[in-house]
Simulated assay, not measured.
Amino acid sequence: MCYRDFKSKLINPRKFGLEAPIQRYGHPSPYGYEFARYFENVVKTSKNAGEAVQKLGYANASMIYHHLNRLGLEVPPHWGLKPSVGKQRRGLVPEVIDQTERDRAWVAALHQGEGCLATHYQRRSGETSLQLRVGMTDSAPIFRFCDSCGTGRPKRPTPRKIPWKPMWIGAVGGLRAYRVLQEILQFLSGQKLEEARRALEFFALDGYRKGRYEAYDIWPDDEFPLRKRSLASYARSIMAKNADLDFKDSTPLQLDRTCMRVADVLLDAIPDGLELAEIMDRSGASWTAVIHHLKHLEGNFLVAREKVHQKVGPRLLFRALHRLVEVRELGWIPNHLDSPAKV
């Protein structure tokens, strides 16, 4: 059979230097100038992707989404709306999630230490849902959390960069998360309690709210400083919130020689920060010792970490805060300590 037959020319006319027909299969050619307007009109007047497939004569909906992406059009929001299915699923959520007071106290304690509140935007429905997440390297508490909240267990941990271990993450969302938060509210304290109250006020009784909202829209940085990670946002708000602290009238910090050496290295690098490897080289301490003492200094609001994004990838820098300078002026950190032996 000759390749240059009539059927091959009909299927791919441009290959043989022919113009594509204006009308084919009942609609304009995808390569014609009239197709974009025609396709947009079909998409807008169709109830779902299946109806658009029937109008255009395609075999499946993959070509519909291909042309949407090619022409820069968005998927109509009413294609993903299934209110009846959403109501049925929310009706399956029990009124009481944690049956016993002991389970509620245990879930609250786990959320107080290892949990966080987040949001999830559903593009098809245009709604933002409440999410309660807990992450740990040990799978047993995560499995118990999922069983207590009535949600599925994670099948595998989430991998992280070396040297960090994989993390097991359990998540509860929507109406279930809203009811769990109501039940554990009495056991929470501190900023976790403030975050929970704000979430219960912001979201509707079903755990959803119309529109797109990020976490910072619900929990602003100036009101919830402990949610911050970077130096620019976290450190300034912490210092403002603890401006009444006076080191002169307080008990001296318990800093061993290695901790003082790490602090001295960071003070010498002001205003630039240092990476973990640079701190190890300048202090002479091991990786484990440096990590341990950096956490101790961060817990006392003396050091803050900052993630700097570059073309080659993000860098994690540690910088000394102004309070660390005050601690040195009080004589709690001697100047220019001798480098200790490798710990």
Results as ranks from 00 to 15, higher is better:
Gly207Arg: 03
Tyr208His: 15
Arg209Leu: 00
Arg209Asn: 04
Lys210Gln: 12
Lys210Gly: 08
Gly211Lys: 08
Gly211Cys: 00
Arg212Met: 13
Arg212Leu: 09
Arg212Lys: 11
Tyr213Val: 04
Tyr213Arg: 07
Glu214Arg: 13
Glu214Ser: 14
Ala215Asn: 12
Ala215Ser: 14
Tyr216Cys: 08
Ile218His: 01
Ile218Leu: 09
Trp219Thr: 03
Trp219Gly: 06
Pro220Arg: 10
Pro220Ser: 06
Asp221Lys: 13
Asp221Arg: 12
Asp222Asn: 07
Glu223Asp: 09
Glu223Trp: 07
Phe224Ile: 10
Phe224Trp: 03
Pro225Trp: 10
Leu226Trp: 12
Leu226Gln: 11
Arg227Tyr: 05
Lys228Asp: 11
Lys228Met: 14
Lys228Pro: 00
Lys228Tyr: 08
Arg229Ala: 13
Arg229Tyr: 11
Arg229Ser: 15
Ser230Gly: 06
Leu231Gln: 12
Leu231Arg: 15
Ser233Cys: 05
Tyr234Ala: 12
Tyr234Trp: 14
Ala235Lys: 03
Arg236Phe: 08
Ser237His: 13
Ser237Met: 11
Ser237Leu: 12
Ile238Ala: 02
Ile238Asp: 02
Ile238Glu: 05
Ile238Arg: 09
Lys241Met: 12
Asn242Ala: 13
Asn242Ser: 14
Asp244His: 11
Leu245Ser: 06
Asp246Pro: 00
Phe247Asp: 12
Phe247Arg: 14
Lys248Asn: 02
Asp249Val: 08
Asp249Pro: 01
Asp249His: 12
Ser250Cys: 10
Ser250Asp: 04
Ser250Gly: 05
Thr251Glu: 11
Thr251Ala: 15
Leu253Gly: 03
Leu253Val: 02
Asp256Arg: 10
Asp256Glu: 10
Arg257Gly: 05
Arg257Lys: 08
Cys259Glu: 06
Cys259Tyr: 00
Met260His: 07
Arg261Tyr: 02
Val262Glu: 02
Ala263Thr: 01
Leu266Ile: 03
Leu266Ala: 07
Leu267Val: 01
Leu267Gly: 05
Ala269Val: 00
Ala269Leu: 03
Ala269Asp: 05
Ala269Gly: 07
Ala269Gln: 08
